[in-house]
């Protein structure tokens, strides 16, 4: 249970700030919704008035067509009722934000989704000092520790090359917003080959290019003639395309999945991909602990994922921690 001093509380619509009369990433329609980022479990349709970051607006536009959206620059302060509100980079995807709420000198920060690893497609996470920190907990177990991105890029390139040598396509599944663009940007440091894209990724990659993110050249799979041989090509597709009829055009394809979940062998095997690449847009365990400490918050409310281990661990560290039951997903 939250307390009044937490500045936020749970309502049936979602996470609510009574002092400012707004919701953050509500899962049901409300009057005022501040959206941390454009992922489906955070940006939902139906609310009357949306607020988000200026840089993330084009992506929110893809997700919430026709909505009324006002934007804030990172760091720009705006009054909502009794609350002073500002948005700060979360390092999760392009335009993602943490929400800082200040009421009578007390500060609560809602992290949204975040990561601390470098990402060429978005502004790095900013540590915002606060009294109350609502932190995500998607990967909140110490077995989740991310390898350096250079090593993962080298693995992906080696797999691509091995597929080319065997004369088979390499189909890499990853989330269409954020992960796909980050991979295209990271791979650009190692190669300049063209990558083929599933239709669900085209518009989002286009938005990223318009916003100035440098990525590998891409072509839509649908531009290729029927019966084209994709041997040796790298194809990016959303996980939902796995096992669909769309996959039939890639003869004998080797498949990979780029996600933090791939850290665990059982996940890799259960999903039946040939390869798992550990790339996450969420904080790993060391980052979670380090970030929570860096904010200086004495009160920590983990949510969005696995809070079972994190809450008692934070209590052992002497923090006032309590889980917050929300409706966010576990996609990565």
């Amino acid at each position: 249970m939250t307390r009044p001093s937490d500045l936020v509380a749970l309502t049936p619509e979602g996470l609510y700030c009574p002092a400012g009369d707004f919701h953050i990433d509500p899962w049901r329609p409300t009057s005022t919704a501040i959206i941390t980022h454009a992922h489906g479990d955070h940006a939902r349709t139906g609310s009357q008035h949306y607020w988000g970051t200026k840089v993330g607006a084009p992506l929110l536009g893809e997700r919430l067509p026709g909505m009324t959206l006002d934007t804030l620059d990172y760091g720009e302060v705006r009054r909502f009722g009794e609350a002073r509100v500002s948005l700060h980079p979360a390092g999760h995807i392009l335009g993602s934000a943490q929400v800082r709420i200040e009421v009578d000198g007390r500060v609560c920060v809602v992290s949204g989704d975040y990561k601390r690893d470098p990402d060429p497609t978005c502004a790095p996470f900013e540590v915002v000092p606060c009294d109350v920190f609502v932190t995500e907990a998607t990967f909140a177990l110490p077995v989740y520790r991310w390898p350096p991105m250079e090593a993962v890029v080298a693995d992906v390139i080696a797999w691509w090359d091995a597929c080319a040598a065997r004369g088979v396509p390499a189909v890499l599944f990853c989330y269409a917003l954020g992960k796909a663009q980050r991979l295209l940007a990271e791979l650009a440091r190692a190669t300049d080959r063209t990558v083929h894209l599933h239709g669900a990724m085209l518009a989002l990659v286009e938005r990223y290019r318009e916003l100035g993110v440098a990525m590998l050249p891409t072509v839509p799979v649908s531009d290729s003639a029927r019966g084209r041989d994709f041997a040796g090509e790298l194809i990016l597709a959303p996980p939902s395309a796995a096992g669909s009829t769309w996959m039939r055009r890639f003869n004998n394809a080797s498949t990979g999945f780029a996600s933090g979940w791939m850290r665990i062998r059982g996940n890799r095997r259960r999903r039946g991909y040939d390869r798992g690449f550990v790339v996450s847009d969420h904080a790993d365990w060391p980052s979670l602990i380090e970030t929570i400490r860096a904010t200086g918050a004495q009160r920590v409310l983990p949510t969005h994922g696995n809070t079972d281990a994190l809450v008692p661990y934070l209590r052992e560290l002497g923090l006032d921690a309590e889980p917050l039951r929300t409706d966010f997903g576990s996609e990565d």
């Binding site: 177990l141 110490p142 520790r145 665990i264 696995n306 079972d308 281990a309």
Partner: peptide
């Protein structure tokens, strides 16, 4: 070896489902 309390090692093990792998990941 990891510096984590034993209960957290247990929690990790029950999540991963394989002790050999859990230790390696920690």
């Amino acid at each position: 070896a990891s510096g984590y309390p034993e209960w957290l090692v247990e929690e990790s093990y029950s999540h991963v489902g394989d002790l050999a792998e859990t230790i390696d990941l920690l």
